[in-house]
Nucleic acid binder design. Sequence first.
DNA 1: AACTTGGGAATTGTTGAACACTTGACTCTC
DNA 2: GAGAGTCAAGTGTTCAACAATTCCCAAGTT
Lengths: 225, 225
Amino acid sequence: MELAEINRISVADQVASILRRRILDGELPPGTALQELTMAASLGVSRNTVREATRILSLEGLLKRNAHRGVAVAQLSLEDVAEIYQLRHLLEIPAVLAAKMEDSDVLTEMRTALEGYEEAVEGVDWVRAVRFDLHFHTLLIRFHRNRRLESFYQKLLSELRMGMVLVDLRHDDPGGLVPAHRRIYQLLTSGETNQCATLLAQHLRDSESRLTVVMDQRIARAAAK
Amino acid sequence: MELAEINRISVADQVASILRRRILDGELPPGTALQELTMAASLGVSRNTVREATRILSLEGLLKRNAHRGVAVAQLSLEDVAEIYQLRHLLEIPAVLAAKMEDSDVLTEMRTALEGYEEAVEGVDWVRAVRFDLHFHTLLIRFHRNRRLESFYQKLLSELRMGMVLVDLRHDDPGGLVPAHRRIYQLLTSGETNQCATLLAQHLRDSESRLTVVMDQRIARAAAK
DNA sequence: AACTTGGGAATTGTTGAACACTTGACTCTC
DNA sequence: GAGAGTCAAGTGTTCAACAATTCCCAAGTT
């Protein structure tokens, strides 16, 4: 039986996926206004279907709806970043502390993510690097073995990613955070979870301040104009 | 200027709210199948609007969509309950540990919730009691001062509430958990957060086992039939 | 010149009807 | 009874229309 990949995904969900990818890859930068009719025409679907898709994405936090004013790609504020990083601490630290020897499946996936990260940095592919960076952290959360938490976390990091792909490369070094990831991975494989947790906390603080600095500059530039 | 409460909520959102209330109050028990046309007619709105509402609720986890098979009120499994309680431990314990003296606003709200809980139990109003019980715990989460976390937690407890309002009263004492809440509140007001955390952990285990027992019985009865 | 005041034009919110497709039950045959 | 064909019911999607709201711009007022 060759029923493998029959298209069982509704059109609305497919549209949502397409838009999600475009937003997360930076094709649709934060603030971009989206028109229902235009999108419907360009995607070859009806307006109703587009509305369903935007409804999905606005509940995910990627789009922002304003009644009668249309939807726009959400824009992270500094408060949003602080909130998200607070949650990252709250959720990632206990995750590594809960890591067990039985979690070798997660560890192998983390190795793959790590290698992808390093390759992307070598190839100067910023979008890909961010994707692998955040995927690595999503895998940390998997130590909790909790599906609801994973999907919540995915949503959180998606919001963050939206802000990160936009940072100007000239103001930050994409590869600067690779060594920290490598050490975290090593400490996990050797079972030194406590040491790993402290390193991770440091890494998160570092990552947050990098993002905050860049966003500060952007905001200052935007205000000056 | 008397603009106070102009209706700025879209019809779809209103429909979603109505359905949400009916589900959480147990009017629509888990497993109930819902038909788009029937709902549209009974609510006096169009089918498209109903579809938007069901989309919202399915993303919240209250409804479950099956392609071409309609939507039904979600049904909690024992695994779901375990997952949710794992998250309650992960999130509520650090919340009370983070409680500060400045959080008196939250404490006064907790007092109100506590009183409502006690009244509901006296009046043998199970639905109201569960609502106040879970609202009390939502307030604990507020110590984190994190809006994203609060909305996630609200969603989690909604799922739980759906299962709790259904428990057969003959198999459980609605008021059994009141004293624990009262003590938690007292320990918070006196700033004994560490002691409060251990009591809370015990309370959560207690609450989980109560729910699990009742659900086990329901499942056994359903299987026997 | 700054401020209001009306129009429209454009866009979203909502409706109703239509049609394609899937599902589930029913019947009919062997 | 088991399997194949049939059909009604319901969902997925589209389309066209209209109502409601916002935005913009020109005209008038002070």
